[in-house]
Design a protein around this nucleic acid. Structure first.
Length: 233
DNA sequence: CGTTTTTGACCTGCGC
DNA sequence: GCGCAGGTCAAAAACG
């Protein structure tokens, strides 16, 4: 869905860009035109996605919700809007951080997320919008440390654990592990972290968008027209 | 035996 | 005021 722009740019700067009419030059010209078309379509799609995410943000900030944070998983209780909030990047409340962790072993039900801190589980609950239980943890330094976290499998993707941290630790962690931050992009420092972030984000958006029939039609149109144009060359 | 996890009961806030 | 759903408590069980 998302074009690999770095590759596109590499293709666009081939050493064969003389203005003569050699077969290689013609080929290069065609490739450039194709790239322009694909790029335009990609931009259109991304605009569409941005619009959907903005709509989703409006839903998240809907004051009808009981309390912020409770809509952490599967806000799709509304029958008309079936988008989930996993793609949202910013939260209105400070001190609340969402982290996505990938699970490789689906049979592992422990929902243990190693984040460098010690946690004590104090509850577990099955929520209405997600069949997998939500686990509640307090920092083991409580009550001096007020931090809590909630861990639940993503309703969209079994391979993802959604971890919601509330509050800030007032002590040092035992060990630090890299996390996939989605609430604070500034914490994605390395290219590898950015790559992981993109991967997770794309998965979430794809899962959400699959539920939008209009978008599927648009996507199908874009792909089919793209293929036709490609075959014309 | 101390610590952690489990789990049913209870509390709280919100919508109707 | 009632019902619902999420969050928390606390006793019992499990574990090292």
């Amino acid at each position: 869905m998302v074009l690999d722009t770095s590759r596109a740019i590499d293709l666009n700067v081939t050493p064969f860009h003389k203005t003569d009419d050699t077969p290689m030059s013609l080929e290069n010209k065609k490739l450039k035109e194709m790239l322009t078309i694909v790029w335009d379509k990609n931009t259109t799609l991304q605009n569409h996605v941005n619009k959907l995410m903005q709509d989703n943000e409006v839903l998240l900030n809907n004051p009808h919700k009981r309390k912020f944070g409770q809509c952490a998983e599967g806000c799709a209780s509304g029958s008309t809007e079936n988008l989930h909030d996993h793609g949202s990047l910013k939260r209105p409340n400070e001190g609340i951080t969402r982290v996505y962790r990938r699970i490789d072993d689906l049979s592992d039900k422990s929902m243990v997320v190693k984040d460098g801190y010690q946690w004590r589980k104090y509850g577990q609950k099955v929520t209405r919008d997600n069949p997998s239980p939500r686990a509640y943890y307090k920092c083991s330094f409580a009550p001096s440390c007020p931090v809590k976290k909630k861990v639940q499998r993503s309703v969209d993707n079994d391979h993802l654990l959604v971890v919601i941290y509330e509050g800030e630790h007032n002590h040092e962690s035992m060990e630090k592990e890299p996390e996939i931050q989605t609430s604070s992009i500034s914490r994605l420092n390395s290219p590898m972290e950015m790559l992981k972030y993109d991967q997770v984000l794309v998965e979430q958006m794809a899962n959400s968008l699959r539920r939008k029939p209009d978008f599927i039609e648009d996507l199908a149109d874009a792909i089919s027209s793209n293929i036709l144009e490609y075959e014309l060359f």
